[in-house]
């Protein structure tokens, strides 16, 4: 697997990004640049602005001040088909089965082949033949399906907000390993979480946020052996 050097062109460039909610400043002037092909883990307390930052980059919110470029584009709309977003909530219809959900969301990206959905479900370790409705899924299954929905269209950039919340440790480790594999295919992944330990051996860089700012960025030297072991564990 060819490792992608940190010097590859930036996927996201943030310029003095500010976001107010009324009188509250959720994002307070973030300027940063993120290279492609890496897995970033965004850490921070509640209210540090992690989710807000992700929502802005995903195009769900307008920044109050500042600007950003995403995959070289000024508006998210232009590159929407190259970005995958997984929200804090599952973003799935409870009344539909897993495949029905994925079939619908694939259609939004112009993909009308069931193979995409099946592939995505298998990738996250779910059975595509499962006829149960999502409302009856366990939390872990739901998060997996949610991940499958976000990566359905094979995006170059994935923005994942708390993918491991309410997920048992084993499932979470599985999902982290999946993310590592996806990154190895050259994709860029941002994971917002407060369970940094789960990303051990997978993350390339830890980004710490506090009070609406990026306070530190730390390169993680991945232990190749540990990583490989983690990858072959399944």
């Amino acid at each position: 697997m060819i490792g992608i050097a940190p010097s590859s062109p930036p996927v996201i460039v943030l310029e003095n990004l500010v976001k107010f909610f009324g009188r509250f400043a959720a994002i307070r002037g973030i300027s940063a640049s993120f290279a492609g092909g890496r897995l970033y883990v965004i850490l921070g307390d509640n209210g540090a602005g992690k989710s807000t930052l992700l929502r802005i980059v995903a195009g769900l919110m307008e920044p109050s001040q500042g600007s950003f470029t995403l995959l070289g584009a000024k508006t998210v709309h232009e590159v929407a088909h190259r970005v995958g977003y997984m929200g804090h909530a599952p973003l799935l219809y409870d009344e539909l089965s897993g495949m029905e959900n994925l079939r619908y969301f694939a259609g939004l990206y112009g993909l009308h082949d069931d193979v995409v959905g099946r592939h995505a479900m298998q990738m996250v370790g779910l059975d595509p033949e499962l006829t149960r409705r999502v409302g009856q899924y366990s939390q872990g299954m739901r998060q997996r399906l949610s991940l499958a929905r976000a990566v359905l269209h094979n995006p170059e950039l994935m923005l994942l907000d708390e993918p491991f919340s309410n997920v048992d440790v084993r499932s979470a480790r599985d999902m982290a390993a999946i993310l590592g594999r996806v990154r190895d295919q050259g994709k860029t992944i941002f994971v917002v979480t407060h369970q940094a330990a789960l990303m051990e051996g997978v993350a390339d860089e830890l980004v710490h946020m506090a009070e609406g700012q990026i306070v530190s960025r730390a390169e993680v030297v991945r232990d190749a052996a540990a990583n490989a072991a983690l990858r072959t564990a399944r």
Partner: peptide
């Protein structure tokens, strides 16, 4: 409102 917001941005850091 924006004065309050700017204050929140600069002041309480």
């Amino acid at each position: 409102e924006s004065a309050h917001a700017q204050l929140a941005l600069k002041g309480v850091s």
